[in-house]
């Protein structure tokens, strides 16, 4: 599997074979309707109401609030986040999120959006780890969700393209694959129990299949407004929720285990355009 993956990413990087990677900003509802048109998928089409209401997505307002926060001079250091390097250089936001998680030389770690944002808030703006700006991770009213939603939206329509050049990026992705299929606990589940076949349902919910990038792109398009929870939610919130449903221990935000899992799941959507912010059940 690893070999095949290496060959694939090499081929894509070297000669840009296969589908041309899209790299222009597009409205999330446009990306989704395009995906639906091109692919037969009961997962993508499962909630027509959500699709129709996409332009009214409450997450779009959150992105606006996040934008204001990003450029505001804040924290003990009274500076903006404009020097925050999300992987494409200080302050470069467009297309940055679809290339996360990635290796950062300044920390020596592979980091996802959430952990990188924590790094910027604490090192650049000087917020303490226990300041609510940093420590409150969930809910539409949190700075974390506002900032994540704004930053992610600057990648909508860009194809997922997490770099795999650094050996740590590959090591994390491969460990993430093991985590994804690792069965454990009182229910004997792994993520693969529910997300490795197409068109299956849990109760009435159609499940996304990790082996179909055109489905999986929607699955990992977070932040998303969750209609059932009336809040914008993050990738980590989804990871935590699925471990909870599996009756396995609580996943810790920013841990290498959580980041490894996201490295694998982002790699699995490679080449397909992101839908940001998304809206889900």
């Amino acid at each position: 599997m690893v070999i095949r993956h290496l060959l694939l990413s090499f081929a894509l990087a070297a000669i840009c074979a296969g589908p041309v990677l899209s790299n222009e900003l597009r409205a999330p509802e446009e990306v989704l309707s395009d995906l639906i048109e091109k692919n037969e998928s009961s997962y993508l089409t499962q909630s027509e109401q959500n699709i129709m209401m996409m332009p009214d997505n409450a997450a779009l307002w959150l992105a606006d609030e996040g934008k204001a926060l990003f450029y505001e001079q804040r924290g003990p250091n009274n500076v903006s986040l404009e020097t925050c390097d999300l992987g494409k250089g200080p302050g470069v936001l467009e297309g940055a999120y679809v290339e996360l998680p990635r290796y950062f030389a300044d920390t020596g770690r592979v980091m996802d959006l959430e952990s990188r944002l924590v790094y910027c808030l604490t090192t650049i703006q000087g917020f303490a780890d226990d300041d609510p700006t940093v420590s409150t991770r969930h809910g539409s009213s949190s700075d974390m969700m506002k900032l994540q939603t704004f930053i992610a939206a600057q990648s909508s329509g860009y194809a997922w393209n997490p770099p795999m050049e650094h050996p740590l990026e590959k090591a994390m992705r491969d460990a993430g694959e093991v985590l994804f299929y690792r069965r454990a606990g009182t229910s004997d589940f792994s993520c693969g129990t529910c997300h490795a076949a197409t068109g299956k349902r849990i109760r009435a919910s159609v499940l996304p299949d990790i082996n179909r990038p055109e489905e999986w792109t929607k699955a990992i398009s977070w932040p998303a407004y969750r209609v059932g929870q009336q809040n914008v939610r993050s990738s980590q919130h989804r990871v935590r929720g699925c471990y909870w449903q599996m009756r396995q221990p609580e996943s810790i935000a920013g841990s290498d285990a959580a980041i490894a899992l996201m490295s694998y799941w982002t790699d699995a959507a490679r080449g397909q355009p992101s839908i940001l912010p998304d809206k889900k059940r």
Partner: peptide, 14 residues
């Protein structure tokens, strides 16, 4: 690595 991340590197509230 996966075992290490689970049991030694604070991946979960064990």
């Amino acid at each position: 690595l996966a075992e290490y991340l689970i049991f030694e590197a604070g991946g979960f509230d064990l």
